[in-house]
Design a protein around this nucleic acid. Structure first.
Length: 293
DNA sequence: ACTGTACCCTGTAGGC
DNA sequence: TGCCTACAGGGTACAG
């Protein structure tokens, strides 16, 4: 599902609709997603004004006027659709590329101007929880999260410090949300390619003899930021399910260098190598054995 | 402490 | 066409 660029694209689509709006109704069509919906969910949401919509890692955080936050995770297949008032004939019925999907429309948020925001999630790996805004930093979901990759905290020195003594391979190291928060399977593969680093390398190979970052660690940081920024600019990547809140597909999948390109020719001029598919930590990894060492 | 595996749940693609 | 298996963008709970 949605990794950081997709979640950020969803956030940017929802923000103008949600922020400044009042929740007029909440219709949960089933008791749970991956976890049960919050207790007294509608009661805690209805009447609240949404004052901000932020992203942390792959979480969307809607702050409410009453002091609670609604924290949302899209899992693998979660998506939001915005239905402007008056664009559908019957409540709960809406039009998008794949048509109405009542079996997987699990939650409808009604805003006071008549707009509906629908959460659809076939696989139900997503979840929503509520917590006081002040409790968020210490909450189990957030307390151990790693740094935001697009913030100033992600530096070569930080990566080296976290990689010290770690024998785990680079792919799994970067997938760990407690190290860098928001990277997923696609963008780790792409960043490692762009940095010229093998996914099989030990994480500790980013550390030099003095305990500082190697030159490669610096390249990796630059590659991570660059890949994510380019993906956000393209509206994320759409493999199958992912859509922005306005229903649009992302375009970054057209610019993958390695992801999902097994047996294809390496994009680097003069390389002539073939992209390989391997498995690290139970997930597919794509890389060029010639360019990535 | 670290590492690998199983699992949550559903849909789809590909082999036979 | 139908059946079966493998796999999918995420994250957590275990066992070793």
């Amino acid at each position: 599902m949605p990794e950081l660029p997709e979640v950020e694209t969803v956030r940017r689509g929802l923000q103008p609709v949600l922020v400044g709006s009042r929740v007029a109704g909440l219709d949960a069509r089933r008791p749970d997603l991956r976890f049960p919906f919050p207790e007294r969910f509608a009661e805690r949401m209805v009447g609240q004004d949404i004052v901000s919509l932020e992203r942390r890692a792959k979480y969307l955080i809607a702050s409410l006027s009453g002091g609670e936050d609604l924290v949302m995770h899209l899992g693998m297949t979660g998506r939001f659709s915005i239905i402007q008032h008056g664009t559908v004939d019957r409540p709960g019925e809406y039009i998008h590329e794949t048509g109405p999907d009542p079996a997987h429309d699990h939650l409808v948020l009604h805003l006071s101007d008549g707009t509906q925001v629908i959460y659809n999630d076939p696989r139900r790996f997503g979840f929503m929880v509520m917590m006081p805004h002040s409790a968020q930093p210490e909450h189990a979901l957030f307390r151990k999260l790693g740094v935001e990759p697009l913030g100033t905290e992600l530096t070569a020195a930080y990566l080296a410090q976290r990689a010290t003594g770690k024998k785990v391979n680079l792919k799994a190291f970067l997938m760990d949300q407690h190290v860098v928060a928001g990277l997923g399977n696609i963008y780790v593969s792409e960043a490692l390619f762009q940095a010229g680093l093998s996914p099989d390398r030990a994480a500790s190979s980013l550390v030099n003899r003095r305990g500082g970052p190697t030159e490669k660690a610096g390249k990796l940081v630059d590659a991570i930021k660059d890949v994510l920024e380019r993906a956000i600019a393209a509206g994320g990547s759409t493999l199958k399910d992912y859509r922005a809140a306005d229903g649009k597909k992302g375009a970054f999948q057209e610019r993958f260098s390695v992801y999902d390109r097994a047996d294809a020719r390496c994009v680097v001029k003069g390389c002539g190598g073939t992209i390989r598919r391997a498995v690290h930590a139970g997930r597919a990894t794509f890389y060029c054995p010639r360019c990535q060492r």
